[in-house]
Structures are given as C-alpha cells and as structure tokens.
Amino acid sequence: MSSALSLKDLRKSYGETEVVAGLNLELAPGTCHGLLGPNGAGKTTTLRLALGLIEADAGSIELLGHRLPHEASQARMRVGVVPQADSLDPDFTVRENLLVFGRYFGLARREIEARLPALLDFAGLAGKADTRIDALSGGMKRRLALARALVNDPDVIFLDEPTTGLDPQARHLIWQGLRRLTAQGKTLLLTTHFMEEAERLCDRISIIDHGRLIAEGAPRELIAAHVEAHVVEIDGEDSENGCEHLAERYCRRCEKIGETLFCYTAEPQALIAALEGMPHLRYLHRPANLEDVFLKLTGRDLRD
C-alpha cells in the first residue's frame, strides 16, 4: 500500500494570511508521524484539510486511497480522531458515549457492544462503563476520547495534542496506548507541543512553520542533522561575562536565553573541565534533543 495520507503542494489562505503555504506530507502506513510547529504554524488547519473538513485553495489530498474533499465521507469511515477539546457527551455515561459515537459510523448496536469490553479495557476504564462523564478525571476523559476514536476500528488515527493538560502519570498511560496502536499496525498522525513526547513516540517527524515544511526525518536524524550532539547549559551570577568567552573558546555555537547560556558542541570535555574550575557557575551537561532542534529551526534561537 502507498501512503496512508498524502498531501501535495497544499495551500490554504484566510484573507491575506496563507496559513498552509505549499505543504507536502507523506504518512507511511503503520508508523507514528509527528506534526510539530509553534502555535499558529498551521497544524490544526492541516489536520482539518487532511480530514476533508475544509477545502484547500490548491494542492491535492489523498487519505487511505480516497481523494479529498470529494470522498471525505468514505475516507473518514476508516479514520479515528482525538480532538484537542474532548467534546465528550456530558449527558451520557462512558458506555453510552461509545455506543452513540459508533452509530455515526453506521455500526449496529450489537456490533459496538461486542467491541465495548476491548475498548474500555484499552482505555483503562473497564470499571467505569456506567460512570457519567463529569465524574471522570482529566486523564480518564482523554483516554475515553482515545477509545471513542477507535470505535470504528480505524486504520488511521489523528491525534491533536492528546496529552495537553495531563499529569505525568496520565501522560504515560496515553503513551502506552499509542505504542500499542502502532504495534497493531495502525497509522498515527500526532500533533503535540511536547518534544519529549514526539521524540519517544514518533518514527518520523515533520516540523512546520508559517505553513511550510522546514524539516523532516526520524527524531535522531533530525537531531544529528541540525544540532551538535552535546548541550551544556550554564547558569550563574557571572554568566554575563566570564562564561561567554569561555563558550566561544570551547564550543561551535552558543545562544543566550534569559540568564542561561546554551552551548552546543560535539566535544564537551574541554568546556566541562574549564567549568569545573569555576564553582560560582552552575552547569548541566546533556545530550541534544528534539527541543533543541525545534527551537533552532522555528526561530526562537536568540543568536544575535
């Protein structure tokens, strides 16, 4: 099978603003693909275009072999969506939420009922079938929203910031769920502001800004291609003066964000040795991560 989702030269403007400006994206089946970008980069508009909810000004969209927006209804038969806002039905119990939602896919009641135990189990809500929505915690609601997106046993699942506002325990539970889905061969398109989440879960990542693709690859590839392998963060009263020339001497690139100096280098040993002799400075040595790539590429990089 070719791509689960294929966006080609996609464009969408609102008034004078081009929100999606010639975007290309190929979603390989059975993978988790991250769509990252700062607020206003065009992520949500891209998701809405890819679902056939809005029409593009130019370009083509193919979702599971269906041309969009013309065949959106057929395509969405095989798609699940976890929206940013839970939009669960507050008048219904957990079970009723799933039953009612399944009907929108034309499923018969007994078909949905047969799937219920597995869905509730997947969401860790087995004992909560008859609980009303307002009695669920934030994490439970998100898990129910995820279970609801699976009610039609979709091939592709769109997740729009699925862990925003959750505590670490709840977030880890969602991550486990998403890993199980990719293990089952489902294709995931994930938007998130948590770089750690994207790095852990995604096979491939597209970083977009101003409606354009600015980088794409596996998380490790992106880190290797765009930033040095090591980061030393330096903090301290004297970070203004003493350390800047230090950093210039020992590392390829450094940037100052607030009171903290970020030094990027392939070989941190010499810098660290020098810092050991400066006890008034606090420092943290860590491997480079996706957040470093993201900040560099999306222009939050304060090199001046």
């Binding site: 209804s73 929206p83 939602f101 896919f105 034309g106």
Partner: peptide
C-alpha cells in the same frame, strides 16, 4: 464538531 470527524457531514 465531534460528529463532523465521522463520516457524517
């Protein structure tokens, strides 16, 4: 909005 994510229009 939730319903519009399904095949319904």
């Amino acid at each position: 909005a939730a319903i519009l994510n399904t095949p319904l229009g």
